[in-house]
């Protein structure tokens, strides 16, 4: 059996990559993808801990989380399409009408 530490390591590296992406990416779609990475690293953690403990709660929770992530992605991309129609770009640094 694969040791638990490896799962956690995988999740931690996915989380770091996602975090790095959210810090650096200006393209809206890339940003969304990074956020998905963050979410899914958490899911890996849930599933891994659940597998090592005779309890399916974590896996059920991960399923809920995936459904939620799908909804979130749907709303997020809808917003991006609306932004594109309005500004002709999805470069988030250009969309700054609400700044001071």
């Amino acid at each position: 059996m694969i040791p638990l530490e490896l799962y956690i390591l995988l999740a931690a590296s996915m989380f770091t990559i996602g975090l790095y992406g959210t810090f650096t990416q200006r393209n809206g779609i890339k940003l969304m993808m990074c956020i998905e990475l963050l979410l899914n690293s958490a899911n890996i953690n849930l599933v891994a801990f659940s597998a090592y403990q005779p309890n399916v709660n974590g896996q059920v929770f991960a399923l809920f989380s995936i459904a939620l992530a799908a909804a979130e992605a749907g709303v997020g991309f809808a917003i991006l399409i609306a932004l594109y129609r309005l500004y002709g770009t999805i470069d988030l640094d250009k969309i700054n009408t609400m700044r001071w």
Partner: peptide
């Protein structure tokens, strides 16, 4: 205080993290 609202999304994420 309003200068905090930079409009640069990285700043917001940094603050959040």
């Amino acid at each position: 205080l309003r200068k905090v609202q930079t409009g640069i999304i990285e700043n917001y994420i940094t603050a959040l993290v």
